[in-house]
């Protein structure tokens, strides 16, 4: 942020992001948003806040199933169609620097993954944890509902493993998740990723980087044209 700037221009552009760990388009959207912020001349004046969203909140805790098998079973989707869809997304992901390995991806209940994100947020590691969890899910094929896995990922980021294990063993951060879900309902969000810029503009889905740049540019223009 430029020193000596007064009024709204001195405030960060706040981007609220709703996403789920097992949502492949959320991983892509996360990467594309990061690219847009890096391109943005005022990128240092952007604050990204992640919020929990569960696509399958009723998925049985402790159960894991290959995502491909889940899609085929839950939606009656032919395996060939799943493969074609994944190939397309894999190509888009590669352009954004992502390494999708859909053959390894697991469908799990993501409540505890969201709890570890909130723990990381309390330590200023929110974005890093979101990024690491996406990679664990879509590249490493890890079970991101497993407490040992989650505590290990927290430790990778320099967080205290014992604190993570303790948080996971309790119902810590569930109220934060409830608040995120409640806000999503208020906003009418039914799909993710969903991005809200300064509580004013929204981007739905893993849009091209140009659309995120447009949202950033418009948000910055607001600061230049509106008084504090």
């Amino acid at each position: 942020m430029t020193a000596g700037v007064f009024g709204r221009a001195a405030e960060p552009i706040v981007i609220d992001v709703w996403s789920d760990v097992v949502c492949p388009f959320c991983y892509l959207g996360h990467a594309v948003l990061r690219e847009a912020v890096e391109q943005f001349p005022h990128g240092s004046a952007v604050q990204v806040r992640y919020h929990s969203f569960q696509l399958n909140p009723g998925f049985p805790p402790g159960e894991t199933v290959l995502a491909d098998d889940y899609l085929a079973r839950q939606h009656g989707m032919p395996k060939a169609q799943i493969a074609a869809s994944h190939a397309q997304l894999t190509a888009r992901g590669a352009q954004a620097g992502l390494d999708y390995r859909f053959e390894r991806a697991l469908m799990v209940n993501t409540l505890d993954a969201h709890r570890i994100i909130h723990l990381a947020k309390a330590h200023g590691q929110e974005s890093a944890m979101v990024d690491r969890l996406f990679r664990a899910e879509f590249t490493d094929g890890l079970d991101v509902s497993d407490h040992k896995v989650l505590a290990g990922l927290a430790a990778e980021l320099g967080l205290d493993r014992a604190e993570a294990e303790k948080a996971l063993a309790t119902r810590a951060y569930e109220n934060d998740i409830r608040a995120d879900l409640a806000r999503a309902r208020e906003l009418g969000i039914t799909g993710v990723p969903f991005f809200v810029f300064d509580d004013k503009r929204a981007v739905s889905g893993a849009q091209p980087v140009e659309l995120f740049r447009r949202a950033l540019d418009l948000s910055w223009q607001d600061r230049e044209t509106q008084p504090a």
């Binding site: 789920d20 949502c23 492949p24 388009f25 959320c26 892509l28 696509l55 399958n56 889940y70 839950q74 939606h75 997304l89 888009r92 208020e186 906003l187 009418g188 969000i189 039914t190 799909g191 993710v192 990723p193 969903f194 809200v196 509580d199 004013k200 503009r201 929204a202 981007v203 739905s204 889905g205 893993a206 849009q207 091209p208 659309l211 447009r214 949202a215």
Partner: peptide, 23 residues
């Protein structure tokens, strides 16, 4: 996905993707 009236939804591109609450 949709946006409430209070939010301005920027025009989506054709090739964007999202996951909905039914998975």
């Amino acid at each position: 996905p949709s946006a409430p009236a209070a939010l301005i939804l920027l025009e989506p591109a054709d090739d964007a993707g999202a996951c909905s609450v039914d998975g």
